[in-house]
Simulated scan of single mutants.
Amino acid sequence: MAEITASLVKELRERTGAGMMECKKALTENNGDIDAAAEALRKSGAAKADKKADRVAAEGRIGVAQSGGKAVLVEINSETDFVANDSNFKAFVDAVAQAALASGAADVETLKAAKLASGETVEEARATAVQKLGENIQIRRIAKVDGNNNVGAYVHTNGKIGVLVDLAGGNAELAGGIAMHVAAMNPQYNQAADVPADFVEKEKEIELAKMSDKDKSKPADILEKIISGKIAKIVNEVTLYGQEYVLDADKRSVEAVAKAAGADVVGFQRLVVGEGIEKVVEDYAAEVAKAMQV
Rank of each mutant, 00 (worst) to 15 (best):
G170R: 02
V96E: 02
A105T: 08
T239W: 00
V280C: 01
V265M: 10
A46V: 11
A97W: 02
N149L: 05
L223Q: 05
D107L: 04
A58L: 06
A49D: 03
A258W: 12
A143C: 05
G17E: 08
R270W: 12
I34P: 00
E287D: 14
G242T: 07
K210C: 06
G147Q: 04
V72E: 03
A65S: 13
E39V: 11
A106L: 09
D194I: 13
I206Y: 04
A106V: 10
Q98K: 15
R252M: 06
S7C: 03
E207S: 11
S217Y: 02
G170Y: 07
I231F: 11
G63I: 02
A179K: 02
L164I: 13
R270C: 09
V155M: 09
R61T: 01
D221W: 03
A153L: 12
D35K: 14
A2I: 12
V9K: 09
E39W: 00
N149T: 13
K279A: 11
G17K: 03
A129S: 15
N186L: 08
K202M: 15
G134I: 08
A291V: 07
S7R: 14
K225D: 09
M21C: 06
V93P: 06
E29Y: 08
V56H: 00
V288L: 13
I277D: 00
I234E: 13
E39D: 14
Y284D: 07
E205L: 14
V83W: 05
Y284C: 05
G152K: 09
G169P: 14
I178T: 04
D50L: 12
T16C: 13
K290N: 13
D94L: 08
K214E: 15
A114R: 07
G242N: 03
L240Q: 05
K225F: 05
F268P: 01
A36R: 14
K70R: 14
R42W: 07
G32A: 11
K51H: 10
V195G: 04
E120S: 10
E224L: 07
T80S: 14
F82L: 06
Y154F: 15
D221P: 00
I226M: 15
A106P: 00
T28L: 14
Y245A: 14
A6H: 08
R252P: 04
L164D: 01
F199G: 01
